[in-house]
């Protein structure tokens, strides 16, 4: 089986324009992980069932394993590596995930953080049901979701559990 000839695609990932050489049969997930060196986005199933590879593409959360790399030409992409501020300050979602213990093994965490960011970008005060729905496609096998939902609620900039009310000790 001769390998397919690589082609150059151009997209902006986490604010940085990138030109990536990739074979046309590769997924965007493989392009990000293997060619762009962004391994924060995880491969848990490679067939769109687990959500570990969730990224934001042109404002929408997508499973990167279900997007061909070539389809990303000209797009704006955010991965988990793009959540922190340039000065390294964690995003409120990241801060709340740490405080609430919303990550255990951490493998699903990048995908859930990105799915949650897409939610909060769109809806700064989601209800618990809206949060559950936004991460319905993300499998977490460690946490029972309880602390993930707490953390997203706490990180919501206009939510009733917004972080400004919860600074200091995280309470159970």
């Amino acid at each position: 089986m001769p390998a397919m000839k690589q082609q150059i695609i151009s997209f902006t990932v986490n604010g940085e324009p990138r030109d990536i050489a990739v074979a046309p049969n590769r997924s965007l997930l493989d392009a990000l992980r293997d060619e762009a060196g962004l391994t924060g986005t995880k491969k848990g199933c490679d067939v769109g069932e687990c959500g570990s590879c969730t990224i934001i593409m042109n404002g929408q959360p997508v499973n990167a394993c279900l997007v061909l790399a070539m389809e990303a030409e000209g797009s704006e992409i955010t991965t988990v590596e793009g959540l922190q501020s340039p000065d390294g300050t964690p995003h409120p979602l990241q801060e709340c995930f740490m405080r609430c213990g919303a990550a255990q093994c951490g493998f699903c965490t990048p995908g859930i953080l990105v799915a949650a960011k897409a939610l909060l970008d769109d809806n700064p005060a989601p209800t618990v049901d809206e949060i559950r729905f936004a991460i319905a496609g993300n499998i977490c096998r460690c946490t029972g979701y309880t602390k993930i939902i707490d953390a997203i609620s706490m990180a919501a900039p206009a939510g009733e559990h917004a972080m400004r009310d919860a600074r200091g000790e995280v309470t159970q």
Partner: peptide
């Protein structure tokens, strides 16, 4: 005391390396 876990910053930032990474 629920101190901030020492492994979580790497996990939430995407820097934590698993074998496939």
């Amino acid at each position: 005391t629920s101190v901030k876990r020492s492994d979580l910053l790497a996990k939430v930032s995407g820097d934590a390396k698993y074998v496939a990474d």
